[in-house]
Design a protein around this nucleic acid. Structure first.
Lengths: 353, 353
DNA sequence: GCACGGCTTGGTAGCGCTACCAACATCGTG
DNA sequence: CACGATGTTGGTAGCGCTACCAAGCCGTGC
């Protein structure tokens, strides 16, 4: 007499949730609205499949009880969490902060939450985080770069959700790819310095991650094409990038090569440090040294003199990555799997000789 | 014959997970290790309560199958998600990026995930996000500021988890509080300028959020104490802070008050814009104008001239907030509910008259 | 000899939700 | 009017895990 699930014995089969803090559940809403629980579930997720009348009743019950669906229960039942996993190397780096802002803004009025991780530029950390994120069955994964380890790549391929790699371009994405060519942008920056008449053009860079390496390769290609390449023009360090490091690297570069007359800096922080060091050492910019930065942070156009930089579309990369993932989730698989958003050389006073 | 849950009919009662991507579950591990599922669960969460022998067997099975617990199922069953909810106004603001980095670093080798939200300095958005975060039953909540709306405050009080407010200090935290006094730091910055001999000391600030307002109040207190206060010395805008805005605000300030001889800037971005505008307009720093910034970003000590700034312990605030929440979770309720980490005036060339 | 507590282990019954299927009403078609 | 097609609603059975309780074992004390 107790076993068979008697549909009417509601009061008996509900021993008042011993754990949850008494928050209303979908069953409470269903009871109040006088419908089945599954209809409430549908009304919230696919309103089109529930009649106008019931939808209104249910909405009223939801409002009255202050019902908020439990995302954990939802994820467990549907084997799919409403979460975007986002993996970037660094959060304090302005570049990624902008990308992440684009991602947040694109998702802010959807039901998706964001799970953000940073790898500290470490492949092992990336593997650990992909493992962790994957265990949640996210709706999509967005990861920076295309230089994943073999393990990471396999984790991405078997994640069972749309994957968007960002910040680069290339022929062989795991799934989708949004970014631009670091090689081309490095070459364009260098060619600009050469066209402006600088000859002893150096490369200054910190934390040489794979993207920086490709910018360096672009620099090298331009210098070799002009017959001006000299390894002593390159000054790099594995240390984390900062304005103060830019200052020190310029000193090193000048010590090695006193006739240096131009620098392509791996990013704007370095470029700013270089600019300040020039002020301090009374080196005239752009007359004695030309400076090109990378990223085009707001301050580059305000600096004195203003600094030429490569503008990248970071915010847009974040937005586009989300848009592509959302399209795939909605079943409209984007036919263009690789999107190159390009870059723009912003010519300013620091190279106007 | 079908209804009664016959304990032995394992093969029958397990219709091979129709949804999940075939990932191993705790039952698979239990079968392989020849123990009960609950023992596996315990071995992973409270290893001390499982015998050495079984623990080893279970670990072997876990490794072999590549088992990763499903955090959603875990959260549902235990009514508690292993998530820290973190709410800050902005991600691109370097200040909060540092705090968030401290939080991440403190949690990186725990099992806790981080759910990050940004409010865009909007109380309504904060309410929405607290609602959303709360629905997950997080392990702890960390929120910036003490100026929550009544609704937000109620949501925090009823969240049923440790709550740490950060970036400020004050008498009446929801639960715990880690930060420093914006009023005191604003006053200290202003007093420093006055001591250095500047008289027409202005305040320049963008995006005047509550913390900025308190810094302004500190400025005003110092100016009034010196008998030098004049409302025309204050130049603010609700626009988002940026280096280029700093430049424009200095222009506005000088137009209003040409005899201005010092400025306390609401943050370092503004200060940098002010510095660049001084270069451009050939105003000598520190001789004609003294500049004090706020936050002490790395670039301030490299700038030419280097810029006096208020150093705040942002990274440490993040770490401390996590430490306090973790202590509370572990049952060691911190007796000190309000922690003031203070600030430090970094004297540099920009005020060395 | 047996009651008792501490330790380890396991079974049962959910947590709150949704996938799947079944039931029913309504409608147009032959 | 029978029939399938379509649209709406609900019941059942889990999703993978853990809280709760119970059972078995050991050693101790009376």
């Amino acid at each position: 007499m107790l076993r068979p699930p008697c549909a009417r014995a509601k009061a008996l089969t509900k021993p008042r949730s011993r754990r949850g803090g008494g928050r209303p559940t979908i069953a409470d809403v269903a009871r109040k609205a006088g419908v089945g629980a599954i209809t409430v579930s549908r009304a919230l997720r696919e309103p089109g499949r529930v009649s106008e009348d019931l939808r209104r009743q249910i909405q009223a019950a939801v409002d009255e009880l202050g019902y908020v669906p439990d995302p954990n229960a939802r994820a467990l039942a549907s084997a799919r969490a409403e979460v975007f996993g986002v993996l970037v190397p660094s959060l304090t780096n302005n570049v990624f902060a902008e990308v992440v802002r684009g991602i947040y803004d694109s998702l802010s009025d959807s039901a998706f939450r964001i799970q953000l991780g940073h790898t500290h530029y470490s492949g092992l950390e990336e593997e650990r985080l992909l493992q962790l994120f994957g265990s949640q069955r996210p709706a999509a994964l967005i990861v920076a770069g295309i230089d994943q380890t073999a393990t990471s790549r396999r984790l991405l391929e078997t994640a069972g959700c749309p994957v968007v790699q960002i910040m680069e371009t290339g022929p062989d994405p795991v799934d989708m790819l949004v970014g631009f060519s670091h090689f081309d942008s490095g070459r364009a920056a260098t060619e600009h310095l050469l066209e402006a008449g600088y000859r002893k053009v150096g490369f200054i860079g910190a934390r040489m991650d794979p993207r920086s390496q490709r910018r360096l390769a672009g620099y090298r290609a331009a210098m070799e094409a002009a017959g001006l390449f000299d390894p002593r023009l390159i000054t790099t360090t594995p240390m984390l990038s900062s304005v103060s490091l830019g200052r020190e690297l310029l000193r090193d570069a000048l010590a090695k090569m006193p006739t240096l007359d131009g620098v392509f800096c791996n990013n704007d922080d370095i470029a700013l440090g270089v600019l300040f060091e020039c002020h301090r050492a009374s080196i005239e910019v752009p007359r004695q040294i030309g400076i090109v930065g990378f990223n085009d942070l707001d301050m580059m156009q305000v600096a004195f003199p203003s600094v030429t930089s490569i503008r990248t579309h970071r915010y847009e990369i974040g937005r586009r990555a989300v848009a592509m993932a959302l399209a795939e989730i909605a079943g409209n698989r984007p036919q263009q799997r690789v999107v190159d958003l390009g870059f723009e050389l912003m010519r300013r006073e620091s190279t106007a000789r």
